[in-house]
Design a binder for these strands. Structure first.
Lengths: 395, 395
DNA sequence: TGATCTTAGTTTATATAATAAACTAATTCG
DNA sequence: CGAATTAGTTTATTATATAAACTAAGATCA
């Protein structure tokens, strides 16, 4: 039960000031006082502390608006570094960033899915080790490690409860990493949820209080941001909307259900359709939606398959809209590489089927961080945990 | 932008104390201090104010646990009255309650859907007038009026944007009522959302932080409570999940879409199946699920139709579970009168189709407030707006 | 029975942080 | 050049939570 006391007030206001500086820098103390409603003296005191903590610095003198010229403040993105890792189905991708998600170092590494858990976790730890070695000298150093995984996660313990595509089951990933780096916060979370955080902090979700990030690849997952905060549900399953039924009499999904959305609006569907249409030349190891979209410019059959996929995507988006009524839906993951070939038909399908037009239609847009969403989101999760908690932003 | 100051802290703590007294009365000052972590002196000061404001009263001396006997505190449900109104498709139902949702007066009135807006609003105002006249003498009198409507609502203005079954479109309902009762808060909200509030405050939702109330009748609507708060989305459409597609190749819905859930898990479906199976004797004006469920005990054909409906309900519940990952799903509305005939098969269907069993399965339970959910929820919305705002309960 | 221990609740003094108002600093404008 | 304006700091005040001391009223046990 959260009780209020004076230090809570201070924490809230300090966060608010820091957030404002990050979002609107360069900004003066006077502007902060005006936009927040806080007293000038309060702002000065809080800013002084933030400067002492290296999160803010003065960046010179601004333009006068008829009086004394203001001292401009900036968020200090170089107060520390963040490590973000995406654990894919057959690859690892790690980034080292500053607090502004500028990538200072990155590395991608493939593995065969047949490799065991230990081997994969071992490679991940090598990558993290390498990232930490590359970290520049900063006041706080590496502030934490975020990991995105393709499955359902128990966040407190950092355990991967269920990751079908990796065939992982109850793997205590965070425990291993915390043992190796006991002094650093380690966050393990579902990849779509982290990608949503990435888009929220540094991408297409920045301006929205409520949005849904759709990670469409082999399957479909989602990260749901409500009131500026990631929504996880009671056990972290919120957003597993790839298994929404869109055809009760449809085809069987690997999850045991019938007619799941992700059987129709994913790479799985495209592969099935390519095979059906006798275009199996596209079905080799190096299958890529991006290449397919390029070829589709002069290949109607391919274009049609992408368009079908987009329409099915739209059918499911309708459910996303009715469930969450978001301001925006951000389409990410490999499927988003097809760009308007998929997103256009999805938009049309939504417009065709939706109940109340103008009130309810969200912007349906492409991911901004592209294939880096998850890794950057993993880094952002550390930022959120350590520097800029969203708790007070809501309401 | 919410800033912190000392009076915010006081407001938070006072709300917290009042909430605790309401939830756990009788309770002593010492117990409040222990469970909240607030200082005894702080609690005493806040309680004194709450007593002066008539929201709390001392209710005698409790049992000693080895020392001085405590003064027990109770929530004063008779500090004021609440008016709640349900606007159905062809009836009005109004209640007058105390702050504990005990019904002091109620009235139900039918109308023909062909009557115009003005006539219906007129009848509603007569009902409200009658309720206000019946209100007992209390410190605060009638603290406000809540109205549940079968449609999408813009809450700030209290405008009914779209109510297909009433054929209402952009009706400024709250404006009319606020003109008549300018001194009283008037809340207009979707019926399922208010019913969810009702169950949260006084019914089956009491113990859950995240739950979904399903209003299943002619159509399907939902009220979604996340982090103890009603979630509305950006334009109040969140929870319009009756129009989730469960069969892309299915039958056309009145909303323009194809294969909507509410074509399969609603009274509409039952009526269609009754007709198909040649049981149209049930299809008269006084059609009632409750009667049908009773007859189903010795009528397999009826039992089978209810069971089918329940299975379709389960298919859609899966989507609710994946979207919100709630602790519980509460089934209300006319369809819930069929009890286990419908809820049992729904549970089975969910268990059969769900991805991760133990983590994700919510309790699927029947509404506790039954046909009074909406009206009591309308009253509760006033309570929440005026006496017990949920703002600080979250996180 | 009465001394001591416990628990409930109040009073008093103190600490923290926001605020208002007065102040200094630096600039524009006429 | 002086008045007005804007930026930022200093100082005194206020509201509130808290700790600690205190009063109140019971239980326990020799």
């Amino acid at each position: 039960m959260r009780i209020g006391n004076i230090s809570l007030v201070k924490k809230m206001n300090k966060q608010l000031v820091l957030k404002l500086i990050r979002d609107q820098h360069p900004i003066s103390r006077a502007d902060i006082a005006k936009t927040t409603g806080l007293n000038k003296a309060t702002v000065s005191a809080l800013v002084d502390e933030l400067i002492a903590e290296h999160f803010v610095h003065e960046s010179g003198i601004g333009e006068s608006t008829g009086g004394r010229r203001p001292l401009m403040l900036r968020f200090n993105a170089d107060a520390g570094s963040l490590v973000g890792v995406e654990l894919g189905v057959n690859y690892l991708y790690a980034v080292l960033t500053n607090l502004n998600a500028d990538i200072l170092w990155e590395q991608r590494r493939s593995f065969r899915p047949s490799e065991g858990q230990e081997a994969i976790i071992g490679e991940m730890m090598e990558l993290i080790e390498a990232a930490i070695r590359r970290a520049p000298a900063t006041p706080y150093g590496v502030m934490g490690i975020g990991i995105g995984v393709p499955g359902v996660v128990h966040t407190e313990s950092g355990t991967v409860i269920f990751a079908p595509n990796l065939r992982w089951d109850d793997v205590a990933l965070a425990a291993v990493l915390r043992q190796r780096w006991p002094e650093r916060p380690v966050i393990v979370e579902n990849e779509a949820k982290l990608a949503a955080l990435g888009e929220k902090w540094f991408g297409a979700g920045n301006e929205f209080a409520h949005f849904v990030y759709i990670s469409a690849g082999i399957g479909i997952g989602a990260g749901v941001v409500l009131h500026h905060q990631l929504y996880r549900g009671v056990s972290g399953l919120a957003g597993e909307i790839g298994h929404h039924t869109i055809d009760v009499n449809g085809i069987r999904c690997s999850c045991g259900n019938i007619g799941c959305w992700e059987m129709y609006a994913s790479e799985k569907y495209i592969e099935r359709r390519l095979a059906e249409e006798g275009r199996s030349e596209w079905l080799d190891d190096r299958f890529s939606i991006a290449a397919m979209a390029l070829a589709a410019e002069s290949d109607e059959q391919l274009a049609r398959i992408l368009e079908e996929t987009g329409r099915y995507l739209g059918v499911g988006l309708l459910q996303v809209i009715y469930a969450y009524n978001p301001e925006a839906v951000i389409i990410g993951g490999p499927l988003a590489q097809a760009g308007e070939y998929v997103i256009g038909p999805a938009r049309q399908e939504v417009r065709k089927r939706i109940l109340v037009k103008k009130e309810s239609e969200p912007s349906i847009i492409a991911s901004k961080l592209k294939e880096k969403s998850c890794a950057i989101g993993a880094a952002a999760s550390v930022l959120e945990a350590v520097v800029l908690p969203p708790e007070f932003a809501a309401v």
